[in-house]
Design a protein around this nucleic acid. Structure first.
Lengths: 216, 216
DNA sequence: TTTTATCTTGACCATTTGGTCAAGAAGGAA
DNA sequence: TTCCTTCTTGACCAAATGGTCAAGATAAAA
């Protein structure tokens, strides 16, 4: 029972068989996220993912029959966390507060979960083969409703007259840059990863420039 | 002589044997750029590249012994074009003009040569394995000298007090987004690629927001 | 204890992949 | 023509890869 050993065995558990399954799946999904983020879909091997998850390859294929199904599942999970962070946009009616909160949330996500961002970037570079449906529905819907909000701010003369779409793309691009291009940033930072302090500076600078950029 | 047939045969040529070589190499490099941009390093196959270049695989390996050497060569060429566009930054001492020119140049590069940008992005996502030397030297040097220029503008109170590094990252991220995330942008644009007009709007919006963002 | 359903795993297989090789074609120089 | 170098290519190979399978282990239910 090699796998069960790694599980936080809380006292005497009842028939938590599904719990075991969930734990194992999570183990695999975590490993898959790491490997897919580094090597992309085609470049990743199920053997490597199994090795990272510390289970035999055949066992991985028991939980996820094909590499594609595993990949789709990883992508789905990432999408969920994206959409969740997107909600931060709605925490206030005040543009300054809403934008600040959203930018901060996206920056924090880049720092805390860079792998997801990288897998997403990989997907987009490849033409969004597995994600076009999701984008066409969820992301598009979210974006369009937020565009309405921004347009309202413009009409109320709370912010400058900017194209909401271009603004959102700028926020996405800039915040995700700190995850996707982390390697480049590190090299340019004398081969040292950003300290928490440096990252906070970046965060406030990004916020400041964008806020001023929309006239706040 | 299948390959020679594709060459622009200018009249009676002298000993243009090297020219043939250059043409064939270019044919391969173009195909490689397309394939690497779509599938990444590991996901690309020499067979696929050869097919795209319309030559037998063995012939590709005659010109480029290994996939890695071919990839490095593609990356080098891309780096050259990056650095070239970077020169646009220096075309003026006036921050407004310099920034505008640079942002426009980078946006145009994203539009005209998106493949290069995507390969670069892929490299960064993977941890800059083949490019850390180049970044550590050329890019770093370029960035640091530009930081001095920006700091000068700040001290002369020509622009707001911003962190030059954060500003440059924002420009890079935003402009390259239009190449790397083109698939996403298209889907969000009702599954239509941006018209020239739409792209020009994006370009001027990006410029406007950033200029205002630094207090111009 | 016996039965049943779920899970684990080493061994295996067909296909794909990067790369080689040797035989020949082509072109310029003598 | 003859010779020599450069280039072209089909056939080939060893290694890697996604996925299968059947035999066993495990745990809960009967």
């Amino acid at each position: 029972m090699p796998l069960q050993k790694t599980i936080t065995n809380k006292e005497e558990n009842a028939g938590h068989k599904q719990a075991i399954r969930r734990e194992n799946e999570q183990q695999i999904l975590n490993a898959a996220e790491r490997v897919f983020a580094e090597f992309g879909f085609k470049g990743s091997t199920t053997a490597k993912i199994a090795q990272e998850a510390k289970i035999p390859k055949a066992n991985l294929h028991y939980y996820f029959p094909t590499k594609e199904k595993l990949y789709r599942r990883v992508i789905e999970d990432i999408c969920d966390s994206w959409l969740h962070s997107a909600d931060l946009f709605d925490q206030s009616n005040d543009p300054r507060e809403a934008l600040t909160g959203y930018i901060h949330a996206k920056m924090d996500l880049s720092r805390q979960r860079p792998l997801g961002s990288r897998i997403w970037a990989n997907e987009m570079i490849r033409g969004a083969q597995f994600t076009s449906d999701y984008i066409g529905k969820n992301v598009k819907e979210w974006l369009e409703s937020r565009i309405i909000v921004i347009d309202k701010w413009i009409n109320e003369e709370k912010i400058a007259r900017v194209d909401p779409r271009s603004l959102m793309y700028m926020i996405w691009a800039t915040t995700q840059h700190y995850a996707d291009f982390n390697a480049q940033i590190e090299i340019l930072n004398d081969n040292k990863s950003l300290t928490d302090e440096e990252f906070e500076t970046a965060k406030s600078q990004v916020t400041e420039i964008i806020l001023r950029g929309v006239g706040l």
